[in-house]
């Protein structure tokens, strides 16, 4: 929520501070780059190929849609490039080219352009695109199946920890050290495993004011608390809360996905409710749901609640919820 004094308007002339959508997009892109670079360091040229193809095709899809719909060309604002990068960070390095191209189509065209472009999307386009891919082409997004030809000598386990937990229980992942997992020594998405880099990027975005800490912190605290409750209830079936924080899409979800401007609320309490709901749903899906990682579906559900929580008084200014 903005401090009240920033809403006081003086007389003209006004001075634009130079900020805008391109600034937001490219700073977010910059903040996400360290985690993406960590993925390239772990997986090599195939990861670089996925990232480059994803950014490039996301821009091209948006350009094509701008042309078809005869609307102003918006690719210059950098949002398509950002969507492309974040989508690539969620994919395995083994993703075939057509999965990447289809993923950016789903994110840009289905997730954003048909709603009128940036600002009009009810769901986070990256999450929507990846969720559709994971349901439709699960094997290509299965990290264990996709990365069978990669050697992980630096990792304590050559399987996706969150999948191992789901299939074989907490004992199967009890030998993994949280610090190693946080530093990215785990099988997973190209840019979603190196928690240290993601947190660094997230803190940068919070301090620059591009994302709101309320959503990220509420999401993470909620994941921790709900996972702790499950763990206390039955430690033989449910993993410790820290494990849930440093594996899967939790950190990238908290800092880069749940905080997307168009699909998240703007006031303090709505943001806290939105983030906390996302965290609870994530742990519920992981612990008792059918899917391995609940972050994608949890964020889609909280995106749905966004118009509702925005109605909590004082209502969000300028949002037609």
């Amino acid at each position: 929520m903005n401090p009240k004094k920033t809403l006081l308007v003086s007389h003209a002339p006004f001075w634009h501070d130079g900020g805008g959508i391109p600034e937001r997009s490219y700073h977010t892109l910059l903040a996400a780059l360290p985690a993406a670079c960590a993925g390239i360091a772990f997986y090599g040229a195939p990861a670089l190929g996925v990232i480059c193809l994803s950014i490039s095709t996301a821009i091209l899809w948006e350009l094509l849609m701008n042309r078809i719909m005869r609307r102003p060309i918006t690719v210059g604002d950098g949002n398509a490039a950002l969507v492309g990068l974040l989508l690539a960070m969620l994919l395995p390095a083994s993703a075939p080219w057509w999965v990447v191209v289809l993923g950016t189509f789903l994110a840009i065209v289905i997730g954003m352009q048909i709603f009128g472009g940036i600002g009009g999307n009810p769901f986070n386009p990256v999450v929507l695109g990846t969720a559709i891919l994971s349901v439709a082409y699960g094997r290509h997004l299965d990290f264990d199946a996709g990365l069978v030809n990669f050697t992980f000598t630096a990792f304590a386990s050559s399987t996706d920890p969150i999948s191992a937990l789901k299939a074989f229980g907490p004992e199967a992942v009890s030998h993994l050290r949280y610090l190693d997992l946080f530093l990215g020594k785990q099988v997973g998405g190209i840019g979603s495993t190196c928690g240290a880099a993601i947190v660094l990027g997230g803190i940068y975005l919070i301090f620059r004011g591009f994302i709101r800490w309320e959503i990220s912190i509420a999401f993470l605290a909620s994941v921790y608390l709900s996972a702790a409750l499950f763990n206390m209830a039955d430690p033989t079936r449910f993993a410790p809360p820290l494990f849930h924080l440093v594996t899967g899409y939790t950190l990238i979800g908290a800092f880069f996905l749940a905080t997307e401007n168009s699909s998240s609320p703007v006031n303090l309490f709505p943001m806290l409710i939105y983030g906390a709901l996302g965290g609870v749903l994530t742990v519920l899906i992981r612990n008792i749901g059918a899917y391995t990682d609940g972050v994608l579906f949890a964020i889609l559900v909280i995106n749905l609640t966004n118009p509702l929580v925005d109605k909590i008084r004082p209502r969000a200014i300028g949002k037609a919820a």
């Binding site: 090599g44 040229a45 195939p46 670089l48 190929g49 996925v50 480059c52 193809l53 950014i55 490039s56 095709t57 821009i59 091209l60 350009l63 690719v75 210059g76 950098g78 398509a80 490039a81 390095a93 083994s94 080219w97 030809n149 990669f150």
Partner: peptide
């Protein structure tokens, strides 16, 4: 943005063609 799209597309094609999994 145009430059980014074209150059990254070229890098992607090289990566997929020269370093297939």
């Amino acid at each position: 943005a145009y430059g980014l799209a074209i150059h990254l597309l070229l890098v992607a094609i090289i990566c997929y063609a020269a370093f297939p999994v």
